[in-house]
């Protein structure tokens, strides 16, 4: 469970806060969309919740432990074992094949052998089992994003954070990505939190959080 209390985030050189006191609880198995206009603070909130940004006022607690109190090794272990992240621009490592990209977090955790068959399962689930050895530049944008999702899930994390995962894809590929999120949420009980501009995609989440001008405007 993740609990955020009184989150305030102000960027250096700016007088006005991007987040102005956000309180939020994410339960295990949640499927949540974060929506709002550009500059409303939804991506900033996602980075704070996902531990990537620890420079803020307030607190983010993972199962009751504040991420600010965690040491360097602890926070990196948390990111490696319990958190998956999907970016808008895929961010695959261009030197590595599809399956090598998927196995990167497992390589960090020294679980390469144990995770190999699961990586192949994931490749099959994202419909790319025949493209395991392809380099990213030989994959389409949609395929690269599916590989990025498989990579985020290889450690079977408790939480999956996604920053506009369909923002750079056409609607058909967007549908595929959403179906995958839905499938993993059901199958692995992964808590999924994603930021989106797409109303249709956002409305498919079980809980929808609307952020407006740095505060939570509505939860439905």
């Amino acid at each position: 469970m993740i609990r955020a209390q009184g989150l305030i985030k102000t960027f250096e050189g700016q007088q006005e806060a991007v987040l102005k006191g956000v309180d939020l609880s994410l339960n295990d198995g949640d499927f949540i969309s974060l929506m709002g206009r550009s500059g409303s603070g939804k991506s900033t909130l996602l980075y704070l919740l996902s531990t990537l940004d620890r420079n803020f006022e307030g607190s983010v607690l993972y199962d009751g432990v504040s991420i600010k109190e965690m040491g360097v090794q602890e926070i990196h272990r948390l990111r490696n074992e319990q958190i998956g992240f999907v970016f808008q621009f895929h961010y695959l490592l261009s030197e590595l094949s599809a399956i090598e990209n998927i196995l990167l977090p497992a390589r960090k955790a020294n679980l390469l052998d144990k995770k190999l068959s699961f990586a192949r399962d994931l490749l099959e689930q994202v419909g790319l089992s025949d493209k395991a050895d392809r380099l990213p530049h030989h994959l389409s944008g949609g395929e690269q994003q599916r590989i990025a999702i498989a990579r985020a899930l290889i450690m079977q994390p408790k939480y999956l954070f996604a920053d506009e995962p369909t923002g750079n894809l056409d609607s058909k590929n967007g549908e595929i990505i959403f179906d995958l999120f839905s499938q993993f949420n059901k199958e692995y009980k992964t808590t999924i939190i994603y930021v989106t501009h797409d109303q249709q995609f956002g409305m498919k989440a079980h809980r929808r959080i609307l952020i407006n001008d740095g505060i939570i405007d509505k939860i439905s």
């Binding site: 996902s50 990537l52 090794q73 990196h76 990111r79 490696n80 074992e81 958190i83 977090p105 960090k108």
Partner: peptide, 9 residues
């Protein structure tokens, strides 16, 4: 950035 988000120190 992506490596750090995956837990690489």
């Amino acid at each position: 950035a992506i490596l750090r988000s995956m837990g690489f120190t």
